[in-house]
């Protein structure tokens, strides 16, 4: 089973770092600045079944929040990445979520607040996140630096994708 997942988030929130933490890369990061995306692959075992996640790591752009719609097309799910130390990245993520939902409809997604290793300097408070949780959002606190919650982020989403498929 193969699934396409998009990594979305503002500029320098740590999307690529999370992906690189998760996969063995094949393509150069330069693709980000050239065509705005790199594609990575990770094989997970979910409930005894191998699931291949094709991770489309989209280049973040806070200012315009522009994303290429064509890159999103065909996605089974997506991951929103927020930098805990920059409050505005949450707003960016919320905007992106609305955009994607508008394009692809309601498909599984998860949000990860990155940089949990420096939680004392976070600007994002729990209240805002709690409100999102109440709306049914799946939210992780993780760190690309320490690897915290990275595996669980992807495997949780993979589970949801499979369950949705069944």
């Amino acid at each position: 089973m193969h699934k396409k997942i998009c990594m979305l988030g503002g500029f320098a929130v740590g999307k690529t770092s999370l992906v690189r933490r998760f996969v063995t890369n094949l393509f150069s990061e330069e693709y980000h600045t050239s065509i705005g995306v790199t594609v990575e692959k990770k094989i997970l075992s979910v409930a005894g079944e191998n699931v291949t996640l094709m991770l489309w790591d989209l280049y973040g752009d806070d200012e315009f929040q522009r994303i290429r719609e064509s890159y999103l097309r065909g996605s089974s799910g997506y991951i929103l990445v927020v930098d805990g130390t920059r409050k505005e990245t949450l707003a960016t993520a919320l905007g992106l979520q609305r955009t994607v939902e508008g394009l692809l409809g309601s498909i599984p997604f998860a949000l990860i607040v990155n940089k949990s290793d420096v939680r004392d300097v976070w600007e994002i408070d729990d209240a805002a996140l709690s409100a999102l949780r109440q709306q049914g959002w799946t939210i992780f606190f993780g760190s690309a630096k320490t690897g915290e919650a990275v595996e669980s982020l992807f495997s949780t989403l993979a589970h949801r994708l499979l369950n949705q498929a069944m």
């Binding site: 094949l26 693709y31 065509i35 995306v37 790199t38 094709m54 489309w56 064509s70």
Partner: peptide, 15 residues
């Protein structure tokens, strides 16, 4: 990795 090539090929084509 043909799966990644396939993905990247699609990305480039989209681009």
């Amino acid at each position: 990795d043909q799966e990644m090539v396939s993905g990247m090929l699609t990305a480039i084509r989209n681009f």
